[in-house]
Amino acid sequence: MPLSQLTLHNFRNYPELRLNAVPGFMVFSGANGAGKTNILEAVSLLAPGRGLRRAALRDIAYQNGPGDFAVAAQLGDVHLGSGTSMEAPERRKTRINEAAVPTNDLAEWLSILWLTPAMDRLFTEGASGRRNFLDRLVTALEPSHAGNCARYEAARRERNRLLADAYPANHSWMEGLDVQLARFGSLVAEARDRMVSALNQGLQQSDSRIFATPAMQLADDELHSEHQLHQMLQHYRPADRAAGRTIRGPHRTDLLVMHSAKQQPAEKCSTGEQKALLFSIILAHADLIAERRNSRPILLLDEVAAHLDPQRRAALFDKLAERGGQVWLTGTEPELFREIPDSALHFEVADGTVRQR
């Protein structure tokens, strides 16, 4: 279900902003620094996690404001809201129909995917970025995954604290943490494995004439059952104590992507090919969500048109229009979006103001 309205309060460079939205394309054009990406970031905060910039909450609030911010949206008859207060600017609060709920509950109502220029480095930087990327894909389809990841990380932080302590921890205390790590770690690993398998199946059926077809694989040897993961944690406990941290487990997983036609790792492909691989993954994932949840996700595509030649740009817009769903796009020039359907809403963004064209 698409958003029908978006309201911002003290968000980035917008003291106040209210936008009506349509089910199809929402197009924002304007100079760099005008505030286009800020609008997409606001939408991304209607999903669990830290949004498309992964910014600290204090950096999101309007610079000349009191320190709070709010993002609200209308989704059919449902009102979604997320933000901070002046009293607690470092704590994000979420409401659904005015009732306070955990932020992870947003995933029950909305699936949101995004592609940003920063993600161009996904295949060449560290594994943590690829794990975060994969976990966002999983959460969009399996909302409980966000909670399982959070519980795993909380247990791992506590275990690392005990491992780094100069005095050995009580055995039963450490054993209890190992039980938690094994339980939530196995749930996290199994969900990731399901996602990679489902995406690979969808990608094999995709049209490779426009965008490159990737093959995905989890690179770890920790994809175990709960029992096996528990045994591994017990076995490596002496090595973990020597290192002062948990050295093996799902927190070390990496996502490997291969250009199928060239049989070449994504990190060795050209920048354009890497972008094409990302497009293919995002589109396949959107199709998977539509199939499983009977509702297309909201797509946030930041500055994507400028990196495509006219043929691929037109093909992308055709694919998005054919599949339906709500798509929010940004670009510096309105001419980049000439092939977008006439039903789209076009906005001009300049110095924190948004005007419909």
Rank of each mutant, 00 (worst) to 15 (best):
R292A: 07
G67F: 02
A55D: 15
L218D: 00
T124C: 01
G352V: 03
G33H: 13
Y62L: 14
Y167P: 00
R161C: 01
T271M: 09
S144L: 12
N160L: 01
R130T: 09
G185I: 02
A107H: 01
L308I: 11
A191L: 08
L320W: 12
V354G: 05
Q263A: 15
P23V: 05
A140I: 03
T116F: 01
V354S: 03
N148H: 13
S343Y: 12
E108Y: 01
P143A: 10
A99C: 04
A350P: 02
H224V: 04
I282R: 00
V327I: 15
L80K: 02
R323W: 13
T330N: 09
R156P: 00
L110Q: 01
W173M: 08
E335G: 10
E175T: 05
S206I: 07
L45R: 09
S206M: 12
M86P: 10
L329W: 03
R58S: 13
T124L: 09
A261D: 13
L52C: 12
E291P: 05
P214K: 04
D178E: 10
A155R: 00
A169M: 02
I340G: 02
Q231V: 02
T353F: 06
Y152F: 14
N170Q: 05
A100P: 06
A150Q: 14
M232E: 06
A73H: 04
G272C: 04
F211G: 04
A306G: 15
H224S: 09
G352L: 03
D193R: 14
L8N: 08
G35R: 01
S343W: 06
A215V: 13
L316P: 01
P341T: 10
K262D: 15
D105H: 11
R248F: 07
S144R: 15
G244H: 10
R92F: 05
E222G: 06
Q263S: 12
A34R: 05
Y62S: 08
V349H: 00
R192N: 00
A118G: 11
A182Y: 05
L3P: 03
Y167E: 07
L6I: 06
